[in-house]
């Protein structure tokens, strides 16, 4: 259990956290501004990954693929908002859950229909492969560092967007009083479509970036979606700051738990059993974390408003 191992695992945790943030920020914006619970957010993650894989394969350029992936996710998001989602704003949460659950089924099966059931393999471009040596002789893959960088850059950009621009002002106004921004003459319908598409684009970006690291397959968005829900419940629904801190917390706790809990149990149990006990506990760790946080802060760490 060396220091370099710890540093490397911390970086892995932060990398998972930044990707979770990309998912969670969209979810939390949509909930904060429109009051909508959207299960289909994981589908945008998948759409982004598939579009990136397909375009990268045909153009040979990962960057063009990435741009296509984000665009495709944003377009699909806008379309879904126009056709389905806007009918749901004034509906009970139960209807929102079911309609977006239906969207998951439609997107997953539709993707399977178009692309088949086998995973697609997407690789990062050659100039992003390989590793760098960090201080303390820790070797770390370049691509994962880039993911962390992208996540941080998006977090800063979102902060600037919301605090410094006209669109951001409207989003903030929408979060605090939906009736009022209508009275102020803001076109709410358009604002909602833009916010929804923005969230979808971020999810698509996350899907494409992670897809290049792992694989692109149907249903890839669902585990991430559930984690993103945990993130925004911990962070406080509607809060971007909460989403960022929640994402990092979940990323780091999850990663370190998976590595160190089995190692901890191995000190007094045979490896196979220790892995079983350790990884069962590790899998539950973030939910336990969530329960503890909610016990003290029922509305999450940074409840936007109530």
């Amino acid at each position: 259990m060396s220091v370099t191992l710890l540093i490397e695992q911390l970086l892995n945790g932060v990398q998972l956290g930044t990707m979770l943030f990309l998912m969670a920020s969209g979810l939390t914006l949509v909930f904060g501004v429109m009051g909508l619970i959207n299960l289909a957010h994981g589908s945008f993650y998948m759409v982004g990954a598939y579009a990136t894989a397909a375009v990268t394969a045909s153009t040979g350029s990962f960057l063009i693929g990435l741009a296509a992936g984000m665009t495709a996710a944003a377009l699909v998001g806008a379309l879904v908002e126009l056709i389905v989602i806007r009918r749901l704003y004034h509906r009970p949460h139960l209807d929102q859950v079911l309609a977006t659950f239906a969207l998951i089924l439609i997107f997953s099966e539709g993707t399977r229909w178009i692309f088949g059931s086998s995973p697609l393999w997407l690789s990062p471009p050659s100039w992003l492969t390989g590793f760098v040596t960090l201080p303390g002789d820790t070797r770390y893959p370049v691509y994962r560092l880039v993911l962390i960088g992208v996540g941080v850059a998006i977090a800063i950009a979102l902060y600037l967007l919301i605090s410094r621009t006209r669109l951001g002002m409207r989003i903030r106004a929408g979060e605090s009083d939906r009736e009022m921004i209508g009275a102020l003459g803001v076109n709410i319908a358009k604002l909602y479509t833009v916010v929804f598409a923005l969230g979808a684009a971020l999810a698509g970006l996350a899907g494409a970036l992670v897809g290049a690291l792992q694989s692109v397959q149907v249903g890839m968005g669902e585990p991430v979606l559930i984690l993103a829900f945990v993130v925004i419940v911990i962070g406080g629904i509607g809060s971007i700051k909460g989403a960022l801190l929640g994402a990092l917390l979940v990323g780091v706790v999850d990663t370190l738990g998976r590595v160190y809990l089995p190692l901890f149990f191995q000190t007094f149990m045979p490896p196979s059993e220790a892995t079983g006990v350790g990884s069962s506990l590790a899998a539950m760790l973030i939910y336990i974390l969530m329960a503890v946080i909610l016990a003290f802060k029922p509305k999450g760490l940074f409840a936007a408003n109530d």
């Binding site: 191992l5 892995n12 070797r139 690291l213 694989s215």
Partner: peptide, 22 residues
């Protein structure tokens, strides 16, 4: 020198690779 058990269907092996390196 070591036995690593991963999750079935796991997609990210960063943690295991770090342990192998270590």
């Amino acid at each position: 020198v070591g036995e690593l058990y991963t999750q079935m269907g796991q997609t990210d092996y960063a943690a295991e690779i770090a342990q192998i390196r270590d």
